[in-house]
Write a protein that binds this DNA or RNA. Structure first.
Lengths: 413, 413
DNA sequence: AGCACTTCGTTCAGGACGTGAAATACAGGA
DNA sequence: TCCTGTATTTCACGTCCTGAACGAAGTGCT
C-alpha cells in the first residue's frame, strides 16, 4: 500500500537481506540449504553469496561431507567484518558495550549518573566517550563500527530524528539523535529500552522462532514491547505499548501518572510495596531499596504478604489477558526485575490468572514464559538496532549521499 | 524478514500495485502525476499503464489542459472491468451486495435467518444463492466477478482456509471457506465483520488518509478493528482486537463471557441497559427491543438515566484510552449502533473522558471521531476484501495452477 | 495558414538481475 | 585411472526499469 516504486536494486537488496538474515540467524549453512529455504535459484545464491564474500561480510566456515559427493561448504557471517555498539541509558548509569557480529561482547564501559534528572548534554557526552572507549578497549577500528544503538527509557519519535520524551529522566523533546550525530560519524539508532530488550528477547531469548509476541517488563514501572510479524509495533508516533497506564480498576488506586486504576499502580514494584504497607499498617515493612524490599516481600511468610502477592498475581493475570485478547500473540514473555522475581515463584499462578481473564481461544493459542535474558541485556538489545538494519539492507552500505555522476559514454557510437 | 525471494516479476507486480492503488484511491490522475508520486520513471508509468489499459483494467477518462502544451490524459480504474460481491452474515439475516470497481452498489439480496444458531450449511446456501442472485439481477457475467467477500461475526482463521469460530452463532470451527469454495469458482474471502467494517471506514469513512487507526464498534457487543500502517492487525491467529473482553473493572460486573469486569459489561448496550434497570429498581424501564430501549434511555431526562449515561461515557473513555496507550493510533473511530447513538449526543464528553484516562502525549497525537458509514456498510466492507487483493496484486490475475510449459526454443542458435 | 514553443507520451538501446541448463569442481570407490 | 554422486559456477536468456531521443498534441503569435 506504500506508494513507492520497486526497482531492480530493491530486488537485489531484498534477496541479499533474505540470505544474510538466514545465515545470521540459523548458523552456518551451505549454499544448497540457502537455496532450499529461500526459494532462490542456486545460481543466484552463489552469485549473491559470492558478492558478500568478496565484501568480507560472509565467510566460508569449513565444509561438511555429503554422502559421497563434493562436500558442501558452510557459510557464516564474518564476525569481525564489523562491530556493533549498544548503550543503555538507565536512571543511575550509562552503560556502553561493544559486540562483534555474532553478538559476542568484547568491551564494556560504564558511567554513573548522579542527578535524578540528568542533563541531556552530559548523557550525550557519556555516550560518545563510551563509544570511543569501547572501540579503543577492544582494539577495533572506529570505522568498522557499523552502528551505535542507544536505549533510553522514554518514548522515541523515530520520524523526528529520534527526539526523546522521558518522563522518568525529566526529558521533554530532547533531540538526542541530533546531539549524538554531531559527535560521531557512526550511524546512530535510538529506541525505547523496553523495545530493545524485547527485540533481544525475540532473537536470543524466550521469543526465538516466534513471529507474534508481547514482551512485558515489570519493574518499578511497567511497560510492554509488542512484536507483530517479527517487527516491533510502534504505532503512529512510536509510543505504542504503554501497557502500564492502561486502566484495569476503573476508579481505583491513584497512579504516579495521575490517573486512577492504572495497571502500574497494582503490579509495578512501587505499587505492590505500597499496597503491602497499607495492608500491613502498624507492623514493620521491608526496608532498603525497592528491589531488595520487593524480594523480601516475596520471601515473607506472613498472611498479609501472601494476600498482597496473590492479588498482584491476579491483577497481572488480568493485564496479561488484556494483551492476549487485544494482540492475539503466540507468546507472552514476562520480564523486568520484578516480573522475573514474581514469575520465578508464581508462574503457574500467573498463567492461571491469565487464563481466567482471557478469552478461551486466544489464550489457548499462546503461552506465557519468562524472559531468558537478564535486565543487563538492554545494551545488547540496543546493539540489535544496527544489526537489524544491517540485516534489513542485506549489508548494503548506505550510499554516502549524492553518488558521483556516472561516467557518461559519448552519445552515438 | 520474511524468508522469501524477490524476482523481477514481483517487482513488476509491486509497481503495478502501486500505480493501480494510487489511481483507484485518488481518482483520475494523469501519467505525469503518477510518475511524480510513485517515483517511477514516466517510461515505466506509460509501459505499466498501457498494459493495464490493454487488459481493460484501467481506462482513459478525458483530458485536462496543461498550460499551452499537449493536454494530459486522465486515467481511472474501469468500473466495469470486474465486479465485487460482499456479504454480511448477521444474526438475523444474510445480506449480499454486488459492487462495481468504484464500489457503487448495483444489486442486493437478503435472506432472513430464523434460528438463533443457524445451520452453517444453510448459511452457505444463502450465500451462494445470493451470489448468483445479485450477478443475475445486475446482468453481470459471473466470470467478471473478481471475488466474493464474506463478513461474519466471529473470528476467522486465515491460515486454516477461513475456519470460522463464532460464539454468537454457535459455530465452532466451521470450515465456511471450504464450503463456499465447493459451490463457486469465484475467489472467496472471509473475515470478521468488525474488521471489514473497519476497512471500509478506513477507505471511505472517518479513517481516510490515516495509516494507524482503531475502529471501535459498540453495539450489543463490543469489538475493535486495529489498523496498523494501513493494514488490519490480525495477530497470530486472526483474533486480535477483542477489546470488549478486556478487564476494565477488576472484579466488577459479570460479563456474558463469564469473566468479571469486562468492558463489554459496562459499555455494551446490553450491559448499559442492565445497569440502568438495576439503578432504576422498581420504576418502569424502557421496553421494546434493545436498540429502541437504548435510544429511549439516551433521550430520557431522568437523573438515573443521566447518571448511567455519564458512567458509560466514563467507562468508554477509559477503554478508548487503553487503546490509545497501547496502539498509539492517529485516529480513533467510534461506531456500531450504540456507539454512534451515544457519540452523536456525547462525543465531547467521550473525548474528555478519554483524555482523562490516556497518557497526555499519545492522546495529543490522536483524534476521536465518529464512524461515517452506517452499520449497513458491513457488506461493502466485505467487498473490500477482494478489492484489497486486486490492488495488492496490481490486478494480475492469479495463475490458474500449473502454467503450461513454455514453448522451448531449439537449443543452439 | 504557418511556425515556434510547450508539454505529453512512447520508443529504444542499455544495464541490472534471477533462472535453467550445461559445465566444472570435488570426493569416495571400482 | 575412471566412474558416480553432489555441490557450485558459468553462460545465454528473458524480464524489467531507465534516461534520452523522438513523435504527438495543443497554444499563441505572425
Amino acid at each position: 500500500m506504500d506508494a513507492r516504486r520497486t526497482t531492480v536494486r530493491d530486488m537485489r537488496r531484498a534477496n541479499r537481506s533474505v540470505l544474510l538474515t538466514r545465515i545470521w540467524l540459523d548458523g552456518p549453512l551451505s549454499r544448497h540449504e540457502l537455496g532450499q529455504s529461500t526459494a532462490l535459484s542456486l545460481a543466484s545464491v552463489s552469485n549473491l553469496v559470492g558478492e558478500m564474500i568478496t565484501e568480507g561480510l560472509v565467510e566460508e566456515a569449513g565444509s561438511v561431507e555429503s554422502d559421497g559427493g563434493r562436500p558442501r561448504v558452510l557459510l557464516r557471517v564474518a564476525p569481525g567484518h564489523g562491530y556493533l555498539v549498544g548503550a543503555d541509558v538507565g536512571e543511575t548509569r550509562v552503560q556502553v558495550e561493544l559486540f562483534d557480529l555474532t553478538m559476542t561482547a568484547l568491551a564494556k564501559a560504564e558511567y554513573p549518573i548522579a542527578a535524578a534528572e540528568p542533563d541531556p548534554g552530559q548523557v550525550a557526552t557519556h555516550l560518545l566517550h563510551g563509544l570511543a572507549a569501547v572501540t579503543e578497549q577492544a582494539g577495533v577500528d572506529p570505522a568498522a563500527v557499523l552502528g551505535f544503538g542507544v536505549a533510553v527509557s522514554g518514548t522515541v519519535e523515530r520520524a523526528a530524528d529520534a527526539v526523546v520524551h522521558a518522563q522518568t529522566l525529566g526529558w521533554d523533546a530532547v533531540p538526542l539523535g541530533a546531539m549524538l550525530r554531531a559527535g560521531t560519524d557512526v550511524p546512530v539508532h535510538i529506541d525505547n529500552g523496553a523495545k530493545t530488550l524485547g527485540q533481544a528477547e525475540m532473537w536470543f531469548g524466550a521469543g526465538r522462532g516466534v513471529r507474534h509476541a508481547v514482551v512485558v517488563l515489570v519493574g518499578s514501572g511497567v511497560g510492554a514491547c509488542v512484536v507483530a510479524d517479527g517487527v516491533g509495533y510502534r504505532g503512529a508516533h512510536s509510543s505504542a505499548g504503554e501497557w502500564g497506564h492502561t486502566t484495569i480498576v476503573y476508579g481505583g488506586r491513584r497512579c504516579r501518572c495521575g490517573n486512577l486504576g492504572c495497571l502500574e499502580a497494582y503490579v509495578g514494584a512501587e505499587g505492590v510495596l505500597d499496597r503491602f504497607r497499607r495492608a500491613n499498617r502498624g507492623r514493620p515493612a521491608p526496608g532498603g531499596d525497592e528491589e531488595s524490599a520487593f524480594g523480601e516481600l516475596l520471601r515473607a511468610g506472613s498472611r498479609t504478604a501472601a494476600t498482597v502477592i496473590d492479588e498482584t498475581v491476579g491483577y497481572l493475570g488480568a493485564g496479561l489477558a488484556n494483551l492476549v485478547n487485544l494482540f492475539n500473540p503466540e507468546r507472552v514473555v514476562l520480564g523486568g526485575w520484578a516480573g522475573l522475581a514474581l514469575g520465578e515463584r508464581h508462574l503457574p499462578a500467573i498463567r492461571e490468572a491469565t487464563a481466567r481473564h482471557a478469552l478461551r481461544q486466544p489464550y489457548a493459542q499462546t503461552s506465557v514464559e519468562l524472559c531468558r535474558l537478564g535486565p543487563d541485556a538492554v545494551a545488547m538489545g540496543a546493539a540489535t538496532l544496527p544489526m537489524a538494519r544491517l540485516l534489513r539492507d542485506g549489508g548494503v552500505r548506505r550510499e554516502p549521499a549524492a553518488r558521483p555522476a556516472p561516467a557518461r559514454r559519448s552519445p552515438g557510437r
